[in-house]
Computed example of a mutant assay.
Amino acid sequence: MEKFVNHIQLGYLGLIPFLGCVGWPLMFGSNSLNLEFFTFYSIAILAFMAGSLWRAGEQSYSNAIKAILPVIPVPFLSFLPVEWALAWLGASFWLVLIFEKATPQWQTYHKDYQKMRVVLTSVVFVCHILTIGMSIYPE
């Protein structure tokens, strides 16, 4: 358990900006800056999570595809309506989790870490859905 305590704490702390971006418009009214911050933070965290799939010493073609697939469309998301971009980003967090669960290392991770990853992905996905809703119906 102690091996993953820092990972779990950092994981949950990483939710604060997502939750803040969902809560801010509910308390203070929506603005485009909040939506932009949420989108860019989502891109950064997704890239980090996808990059962690390609571990040192395990560089194979399939690992590279798994690490790159969720983030390849990111530059093109700016040409789409924000709701579509957020939908891709939200779904990509699930894709990264599915890829991670398919790795042999997943079975070696502590149960608390595995649970945390599922909870984080679920909360981040719901935050994306709520942000999409708030961008469609701002008031």
Results as ranks from 00 to 15, higher is better:
residue 51 G to Q: 01
residue 93 F to V: 02
residue 108 T to N: 10
residue 52 S to I: 12
residue 101 K to F: 13
residue 34 N to V: 01
residue 109 Y to Q: 08
residue 23 G to V: 08
residue 80 L to A: 09
residue 115 K to A: 12
residue 126 V to I: 14
residue 118 V to Y: 11
residue 23 G to H: 09
residue 118 V to G: 13
residue 63 N to A: 11
residue 97 L to F: 05
residue 60 S to H: 03
residue 54 W to V: 04
residue 90 G to I: 04
residue 50 A to H: 03
residue 92 S to R: 06
residue 52 S to R: 14
residue 17 P to C: 11
residue 81 P to W: 09
residue 28 F to A: 13
residue 116 M to F: 02
residue 42 S to K: 03
residue 100 E to V: 07
residue 52 S to C: 15
residue 112 D to P: 05
residue 82 V to W: 07
residue 20 G to F: 00
residue 104 P to Y: 02
residue 97 L to Y: 07
residue 58 E to Q: 09
residue 61 Y to S: 14
residue 86 L to G: 01
residue 60 S to K: 01
residue 87 A to G: 07
residue 56 A to C: 06
residue 45 I to A: 04
residue 26 L to V: 05
residue 112 D to V: 11
residue 14 G to S: 03
residue 92 S to P: 14
residue 71 V to R: 02
residue 62 S to H: 07
residue 59 Q to T: 15
residue 125 F to G: 01
residue 106 W to T: 13
residue 60 S to T: 10
residue 122 S to C: 09
residue 110 H to E: 08
residue 74 V to C: 08
residue 51 G to W: 03
residue 119 V to E: 09
residue 24 W to H: 06
residue 47 A to H: 11
residue 118 V to N: 12
residue 37 F to C: 04
residue 46 L to W: 00
residue 77 L to P: 09
residue 104 P to F: 05
residue 125 F to W: 06
residue 50 A to N: 02
residue 37 F to S: 06
residue 21 C to I: 02
residue 77 L to H: 02
residue 50 A to S: 12
residue 104 P to V: 05
residue 38 F to I: 02
residue 112 D to A: 15
residue 62 S to A: 12
residue 50 A to M: 03
residue 34 N to S: 04
residue 94 W to L: 02
residue 113 Y to L: 07
residue 38 F to L: 06
residue 85 A to T: 08
residue 22 V to R: 08
residue 75 P to N: 08
residue 118 V to M: 09
residue 46 L to T: 00
residue 78 S to G: 13
residue 119 V to A: 13
residue 16 I to C: 07
residue 75 P to L: 10
residue 114 Q to Y: 04
residue 45 I to E: 00
residue 13 L to G: 05
residue 112 D to Q: 14
residue 116 M to K: 06
residue 78 S to D: 08
residue 20 G to H: 00
residue 48 F to A: 03
residue 53 L to N: 01
residue 71 V to G: 03
residue 95 L to G: 06
residue 104 P to E: 01
residue 83 E to Y: 08
residue 26 L to S: 03
residue 51 G to L: 00
residue 55 R to Q: 09
residue 59 Q to F: 14
residue 89 L to R: 00
residue 83 E to W: 14
residue 23 G to F: 15
residue 70 P to A: 11
residue 42 S to P: 05
residue 111 K to N: 15
residue 108 T to W: 10
residue 15 L to I: 03
residue 21 C to Y: 04
residue 98 I to W: 14
residue 43 I to S: 00
residue 78 S to Y: 13
residue 53 L to T: 01
residue 67 A to G: 11
residue 24 W to S: 09
residue 125 F to Y: 08
residue 93 F to S: 05
residue 36 E to G: 10
residue 17 P to R: 00
residue 118 V to H: 13
residue 25 P to F: 14
residue 108 T to K: 04
